[in-house]
Nucleic acid binder design. Structure first.
Lengths: 317, 317
DNA sequence: TCTGTTTGTGGGTAATTGCTCATGAGCGAA
DNA sequence: TTCGCTCATGAGCAATTACCCACAAACAGA
């Protein structure tokens, strides 16, 4: 009993010290002298007050909610980068907010003075982000494309982002003069033997950061719309358990790459190793929920930029 | 962020930095590197977040001594609400601690789901409390001002709180477009006949809770500083036994409203009946000792938020 | 009473933070 | 266009705080 009251008394002191420190804004020296203890003890009381959660701090700003969700996402999926932007329920855009936040993050990386290798995938979301980039001079960096930029008909694919990006930020850039999907594993190996492609492939392994879109599947998936897959193939893939794709790499609901022949025909650079590379996925919206969740589950990506509504879904799943 | 010079964007960044610092417990160096800015900028954002009152700190622990004092005060004056915060002997602020505790109590009332009528007085202490309120959505409640918000020169009085409050908590609000003191009883009656004022007057009678400051008298009393009374009038009032005022209503050392003509010129809403309304006075500090004691003695208020030192005085008196 | 353990204390020191100053970019007025 | 103003920035430095360590007091069990 004596011990109980003593502990309570100590908590009281902690509360008092914490109050003086955080609310009244005094220094620990002042607290020590008013409470008649040493400065070190005052410091201990203050940190005890924090540890015992006697001190509640809160942020009164709309962003607070996003940061909170982000922190939970980070823990749940072991992410190294999270950015949650506010949802705008009134907008039907699939990129609003994500694009700006993605551009900000890309810019942050490009601002570094030491040289980095920045990899990009493709897709509408990523294109929108690139369009938000300011013009910069980054001769120290190299940017490379993880995916081919040739359409199934031989033309340049619509959402090839590497050239738009190189246009905005002046840096050496390494495109992939290939289609995303080729007809066979032999063709892929043949194409990958080109020296130009070889150097890009190697660059992919040493990328510091990669920004990728998350492709959902279905009849109106990007891969179908852009003509890489016809609806029957897509339907077959989905029957085989495909849940989404990143740079063409198909994965199932657990974020494992599919074993079937489809991934043997993907001519993209393998996703950089998540142990050494920050691979940031950009996606939001109901249509991407399943694909994004799978990618996170399987650690295909270790960073994400999304919106509040999507973050809530990912947390509840 | 393409446009980094935007003020709103800067506040967003400040919120981010403040959250990372206070909630996530990161150092400013870490914040700087994750946000891609220099440490100094991070420090500035954190202090900006504090300066803009985005960060609200609160102590959530009943300090035994304060509880004890509060209980004694409750018994002695028959109070329905008591809140004692620690004293900071080194601070000259007249609102530190009281403001935060007042805001917490106001918030507690506003969180109720059933609609309430919340009345506020005016004064520096109350203004400081309002400034600590988080933004809330409270369309179910009505907040009303017990006192006029027009200065003696026709301008808006400095410490008018109702608009600041309505700004933070979105609720219907009913100001008093009158001065605190008018020139005669006839003028007051005339002004009170306005329909707008009529509805506010009626609302005052049905208030569920009222938060009021306690005005001390003297040459540097708020009423003098704000120009409602000149020093001679003040001196005369004090000779007549005035000890303090709440919303302009003058009372003597026993907390009885003064009979003299002064109270006939007060245009404020009568204090809500203490039988049905919780009227909470916020005050601390030597200068308010007498006025607060008188208000408690006369049951002008049946709730109080003050500090340890003041509570001790009130108990010893 | 002795002994091992827990808990608090003060000293010392490295890390962190707050502040001031000089600089330069951005912007509106002349 | 140029001037003057404001404001954000980064550097350096001083103040403040956090952490580590050894020691002492309190305490429980033998």
């Amino acid at each position: 009993m004596a011990k109980r009251t003593e502990t309570a008394g100590r908590l009281d002191d902690a509360a008092r010290a914490g109050w003086l420190y955080y609310v009244a804004g005094r220094t620990q020296d002042e607290i020590a002298s008013t409470m008649g203890i040493s400065r070190q003890s005052a410091q201990r009381l203050v940190s005890l007050a924090v540890a015992e959660r006697l001190i509640k701090v809160r942020l009164d700003h709309p962003i607070a909610e996003c940061l909170e969700l982000g922190e939970q996402l980070r823990k749940k999926f072991g992410l190294v980068h999270v950015d949650i932007v506010p949802s705008d329920p009134g907008s039907s855009s699939t990129t609003i907010g994500i694009a700006e936040a993605g551009a900000a993050e890309i810019e942050r990386w490009l601002k570094k003075s030491e040289p980095i290798v920045l990899a990009v995938g493709t897709g509408r979301t990523l294109k929108a982000a690139i369009d938000q980039l300011p013009t910069m001079e980054c001769p120290q960096h190299r940017i490379m494309s993880l995916t081919g930029n040739i359409g199934p008909d031989g033309s340049a694919a619509y959402y090839n982002v590497i050239f738009s990006m190189a246009d905005a930020v002046k840096a050496r850039h390494y495109p992939m003069p290939l289609p995303v999907l080729v007809s066979s594993i032999e063709e892929r190996d043949l194409l990958h033997k080109q020296s130009l492609v070889q150097s890009t492939l190697q660059l992919g392994r040493q990328a510091d950061v990669a920004f990728v879109g998350i492709g959902e599947l279905g009849a109106d998936a990007p891969l179908c719309l852009d003509g890489f897959l016809d609806p029957e193939e897509m339907a077959r893939l989905m029957e085989d358990g495909a849940a989404g794709e990143i740079c063409g790499w198909m994965f199932d609901r657990d974020g494992k790459l599919l074993d079937g022949s489809i991934n043997e025909r993907v001519a993209s650079v393998p996703l950089p190793p998540r142990e050494t590379t920050t691979v940031i996925g950009l996606a939001k919206g109901k249509r991407k929920y399943l694909a994004l969740l799978a990618a996170l589950r399987g650690r295909m990506i270790n960073g994400v930029i999304t919106d509040e509504a999507t973050a809530r879904y990912l947390l509840s799943a």
